[in-house]
Simulated assay, not measured.
Amino acid sequence: MYYKQIIMIGVGCLLLYLAINKGFEPLLLVPIAFGMILTNLPLSDIMSHPQTLLNMHPIDSKEAAMQAQQGIWAVDIKNKFPGGLLHYLYQGDELGIFPPLIFMGVGAMTDFGPLIANPKSLLLGAAAQFGIFFTFIGAIFFGFDAQAASSIGIIGGADGPTSIYLATKLKPELLGPIAVAAYSYMALVPIIQPPIMRALTSEEERNIVMDQLRPVSKKEKIIFPIMVTIIVSLILPSAATLIGMLMLGNLFKECGVTDRLSKTASNELMNIVTIFLGISVGATATGEAFLTWQTFKIFALGVIAFSIGTASGVILAKIMNKFSKNPINPLIGSAGVSAVPMAARVSNKVGQQENPGNFLLMHAMGPNVAGVIGSAVAAGVLLSLFG
């Protein structure tokens, strides 16, 4: 009877092993995996909904005797049973509160300097989002409706908070498998990306040494989050929540007068919200909801989305290199997915395997942070079309 729960507890233990022993995105996978174990323990009720016991009795007022005869009853709702702990934490996911707060923390930790210094890297961040829309079409082909296809396709952006935010808005019943798939593929960036990068580039291209980026002034870094928020929100209002919180966090960091707010957003608040978001998302992965053919399709489409996003960034970087006066190493195109800063580190690592003296990290950070903006914009487009 409980075989599905036993399987899910095993999956949770496997994710814990990958997070603890292999270091695969432990800050996210540990709470997600533990929430998965908790919710599948028999009779734990940790994710149960609140219940109200209705005691029905006739209205005893003499003046309401006729009403009682007509079947009108008074209701005693004093006997209430509260829901499980994770049910209440999950409200932060369901109401779309936790993901934007995560974005604010990400913004407070992000340096947009490489993107400002090399605006062309914005194109690489945009190209990596091609996997989202390609997989959207694939999900439609596999029988998913537009809302589900949008929620699945966003996995290709390698952005867990955005995946959760869009799924809660469009297809909340798929939140569990979509969140686990998104964070699993984020954790597997160092495994999934390098083979694709090497297959699409030559040894000569991987050895390209890029010119040093120009210095970016403090004024530019302050103006950037303000202008991006205004422009994106005017063009695409549905993206204002994610973009606004991302840029607010970055403004805290760059303006120089809100150090306490910046530190809180990037440390204490970020850590608290990550715990709540991770454990509550994991708690949605019950055996009955998770072990379905639909879930396997989501995981398959998710890896396709992520792979195509990686490949699209590399291919566009190769094309740009043909027409650019300054050399562009195509490896940085793979960082266009928004797994910050892991994807940029992978680009740098693969480049140094070819040439130990080639440092691509700062160049790859441009497309990487552009990918964060790109995934939020992509989510806004899908939300405006199908929300």
Rank of each mutant, 00 (worst) to 15 (best):
Q147D: 06
E205T: 07
G282Q: 13
I59H: 01
M197W: 09
G302D: 13
E268Q: 10
Q91L: 15
G12I: 06
F134Y: 06
K322P: 02
P161D: 13
S151E: 05
M104G: 03
K349I: 10
L382F: 11
F224Q: 04
M365T: 13
I6A: 14
D145A: 15
V30R: 00
T241H: 01
M186Y: 08
I332N: 07
P50Q: 03
L166M: 06
V340P: 00
A74E: 12
T258W: 12
L188F: 14
G313V: 02
G256L: 05
L123V: 07
L166C: 10
S44I: 05
L18M: 07
P82L: 15
G357Y: 09
D159Y: 02
L54N: 03
M1K: 06
G309M: 10
A68T: 08
A311D: 04
V340D: 00
L53S: 10
L85T: 07
T241A: 05
G256W: 02
I132W: 04
I7E: 05
E204L: 13
A181C: 15
I155W: 05
P100A: 15
I46C: 15
E268M: 11
Q91K: 13
G23K: 05
G287C: 06
Q67W: 06
V11W: 00
F142R: 06
I46Y: 06
G256H: 11
P237H: 10
I279A: 11
L360P: 00
K4F: 00
A181D: 07
A187T: 04
L175Q: 05
M8F: 00
F133E: 06
V30I: 14
V381R: 03
G83H: 06
F290C: 03
M36W: 09
G309Y: 05
P119M: 13
Y183V: 15
T135A: 06
A283M: 04
Q69N: 02
K318W: 03
I319N: 08
L248H: 14
F306R: 00
A300K: 06
Q193W: 09
G160F: 11
G374E: 06
E173L: 13
V75T: 04
G256T: 09
L360K: 01
A343N: 14
I178P: 01
S334T: 08
G156Y: 09
W293K: 01
I192L: 14
G107P: 00
A376R: 01
P161I: 15
G278D: 10
L95C: 05
L15E: 10
L85E: 00
L38R: 03
I308C: 10
L122C: 10
E173M: 08
S262Q: 11
G366W: 03
S280H: 14
K80D: 09
K221C: 02
A181N: 08
I192V: 15
K219F: 05
D45S: 07
L316F: 05
I72R: 07
N358G: 10
E254K: 05
V75I: 02
